[in-house]
Amino acid sequence: MFRRLVKSFTTGHHNTGITKDNLFDPIPADCDLECHSCTIKYPASFKVEESADLWQTSDEWATHIIIATGQSDWVRNVDHEKGSMMEAISKAKKPTNGKLMVSASNMCPPPEYYTDTPKPTTCVILPSWTQVENVTPNDVNELIDKFISPAPTTTTPMIDPEAVDGVVKEGKEIQPPQPLPAPAPRSRKNSLSEVGHMIKRTRTRDSVVSNGDASLTAALSNLSIGSRVTQTATELAASSYLKSHECPHDYLILLCSHKHRDARCGQSAPLLLKELRRHLQPLGLYRDLDDYRPGGVGIYFINHVGGHKWSANMIIYRKKAGQGIWLARVKPNDIEAIVKWTVLEGKVQPEKIRAGFDRCKGVTSW
């Protein structure tokens, strides 16, 4: 509680008006989901803290790196694993663009990871959505210098291409967008039969921030965004000897599965994955660990993120919307609403949100 009070005074949340109720649009009050269709239950021994307010119970982060280890459980502190990327990052210089959150994951590393020394593996860097291949602990400084420090962060505004066109023609500097007022909750009813229409509408909305072409990218490279300059994934790749490309998925869901830190995480992650698969497969959105078809939802188990007493923790990244949404106290019967409203629409149950950012609105929870 004391930490949260200090944070509220040092970050100015009491003046910004950003709250758990308006950072993201709320799920409609008359949500008509048939949650009783979920037959998966947590064990009877699965008890979590239910009374505390989850809002702002996590620290801010600028960049999040997901490291492939092929495991779903790890030693208590993953940066103590000898010869690992996690250890190398913990000992390396800090990125210049803010706090780096590091997560080991069950993402599949290349076969050489199990035979070569040092271990070459795969990393996904968010929110730039850059996937770097065959990176070893010896490459950590290159990774930080070329892919993390110059990259957009959770607080880097996303630029509307139409605004850029006008700026390019007039030779002006691009200014970051101002935070938008939170819209009032809307009341409406939808069934799962409407999800296809919702996906189309979501992609249309998201395309506002992703329709640029090669000429726009070239123009952006010569413009400053506020007080800092960022680079695209393509430009970052061209400047490094490490091979990289854009992460193919449109959404990522990260589930804490770190059993050595808390047994509840080892119990909850597989059950939530099963329920996520049940709802995503009929929509053609589910992606297995080795399924890199464009689009869809990639789901990874990750190590300790903090707040195990509020298990299960889930972090959702939405590429085209420029959003990151951290939920807690997630139960299997919440998954239908999370898929329909949070993953596809960016809407949340306010009582479940711990933190998040929206680069289109230019707002964060911190």
Rank of each mutant, 00 (worst) to 15 (best):
C108G: 14
P127T: 09
T115A: 08
N134T: 08
P110A: 14
T136I: 04
N97R: 01
A151S: 13
T156L: 02
S149I: 10
E162V: 14
A104Q: 11
L100E: 03
A88Q: 00
K93D: 07
K146R: 03
V140K: 08
N97Q: 10
C123I: 12
W129L: 07
E133T: 13
V132D: 04
T156Y: 02
T96Y: 12
P137L: 05
N141A: 15
V135C: 05
P111N: 14
I89M: 05
T130D: 13
T130P: 14
S128M: 10
L143V: 06
P127C: 05
M107P: 00
F147K: 06
M158K: 00
E112M: 11
L143W: 00
V140G: 02
M158N: 03
W129E: 05
T154E: 01
P157K: 04
I89S: 04
T154K: 08
V124Y: 01
T122N: 11
F147T: 09
P109C: 13
D139S: 04
I89H: 02
P120F: 08
P127Q: 00
I144R: 08
P118H: 01
T130E: 12
T117Q: 10
M158A: 07
S105F: 03
I89R: 00
T155H: 10
L126N: 13
N134I: 06
D160G: 02
T115F: 02
V102I: 10
S149F: 06
K119H: 13
N97W: 02
K94L: 06
T130V: 12
K119F: 05
N141H: 13
L100K: 14
A151P: 12
D139E: 01
N141T: 15
P137W: 10
S149T: 13
N134V: 05
E162F: 06
S90Y: 07
P150Y: 15
L126Q: 14
P120G: 09
P95M: 15
I144E: 14
K94E: 13
F147S: 10
V124T: 10
V135L: 09
P137A: 09
N106T: 11
E162G: 07
A151M: 09
T155G: 12
V102Q: 09
V102M: 07
M101Q: 08
K146N: 11
G98S: 09
P118W: 01
P161I: 03
A151L: 07
A92F: 04
Q131E: 14
N106V: 12
